[in-house]
């Protein structure tokens, strides 16, 4: 089996117009988050009680919240928190999962059994419960949210990497490399991982959407980024008390959560189809 050629990978990134558009939309969202201080019309934390709970208008496109803060600006700054927390946590989870999965799959035996039974523990708790529990132990905040999400998705990446490595290590090219005197580190880093990683990375991309949802849910329970730092979940948490007289405070962050998850799914689906990862995973 050949690993994906990087140039080809870039070419097939945009197999359908829909996934290409989603990719562009994602990029726009990320740019908005990065350049939030320059793009947003108002600072996220300036309160003005005389304009509290105002409906969307020409001055405040998304309306204002119960402190008179501009909802659009808070949504843009919230993108920073929500996207960065999800991306960092999935990257951590991916990194940990690939390392544990590669070791378990390559070494086999009791290392494999011990490692996998520890990782599989997380499967007996629904991810939201696991995340809530971890945040309850560590205390609320962005850092604990990152750790909680990373642990919640660890098992999935570990399992996937492990399966890939186990199928790959029996292949002829690994034997050839072994017979030429390659050490275990060389086999792992140069032969196995590069070939195993593509489907894992695509799954990681798709999981980022779920991580955004999980981050928003933790924020909604008041356990994510703490005020005054805006996050989409946190905005909906404080907004839910004003549900009946200022629904726009929760409507907009929710739409942005949904949009990012949809874009990520469509974009990821496109890549999945282009790489034909599903077919490869099934044949293994």
């Amino acid at each position: 089996m050949k690993g994906p050629n990087p140039r080809k990978f870039l070419l097939v990134l945009t197999p359908t117009p829909l996934s290409a558009l989603s990719g562009i939309a994602l990029l726009v969202l990320i740019l908005l988050a990065v350049f939030a201080p320059w793009v947003s019309p108002y600072p996220y934390d300036v309160q003005n009680l005389s304009i509290a709970n105002q409906a969307p208008s020409a001055l405040h496109w998304f309306g204002t919240d119960d402190f008179g803060r501009d909802v659009l600006s808070r949504v843009i700054f919230g993108a920073r928190t929500s996207l960065s927390v999800s991306l960092i946590s999935i990257s951590l989870s991916l990194f940990g999962g690939v390392i544990i999965g590669a070791f378990c799959g390559y070494l086999g035996g009791w290392v494999d059994r011990l490692g996998m039974s520890i990782v599989d523990l997380t499967w007996f708790f629904p991810e939201i419960l696991l995340a809530l529990l971890i945040v309850a132990i560590l205390g609320p905040g962005s850092e604990s949210t990152i750790i909680a999400i990373a642990i919640a998705y660890l098992a999935q990446f570990t399992r996937l990497t492990r399966t890939q490595i186990i199928t790959l290590k029996r292949q002829t090219f690994v034997e050839a490399s072994l017979s030429m005197g390659a050490g275990p580190l060389h086999i792992m880093m140069r032969r196995l991982l590069p070939n195993a990683i593509a489907p894992v990375i695509v799954v990681a991309m798709l999981s980022t959407g779920n991580a955004i949802l999980l981050e928003a849910t933790l924020g909604f329970f008041g356990m994510g980024a703490q005020p005054p730092i805006p996050s989409w979940g946190g905005m909906m948490s404080t907004g839910s008390s004003q549900l009946f007289n200022a629904p726009w405070v929760i409507v907009w962050p929710g739409i942005f959560v949904a949009l990012s998850v949809i874009f990520i799914n469509l974009f990821g689906d496109g890549i999945l189809r282009a790489l034909d990862v599903k077919a490869r995973m099934r044949t293994q």
């Binding site: 928003a216 909906m236 009946f244 929760i250 409507v251 959560v257 949904a258 949809i262």
Partner: peptide
């Protein structure tokens, strides 16, 4: 149906309260 799984459940719940209950 994809839409149903991409929106946060609590948000969907809040919107449904707003529409059907209020």
């Amino acid at each position: 149906s994809l839409l149903g799984s991409t929106v946060p459940t609590f948000w969907l719940g809040l919107l449904m309260i707003m529409l059907f209950a209020v």
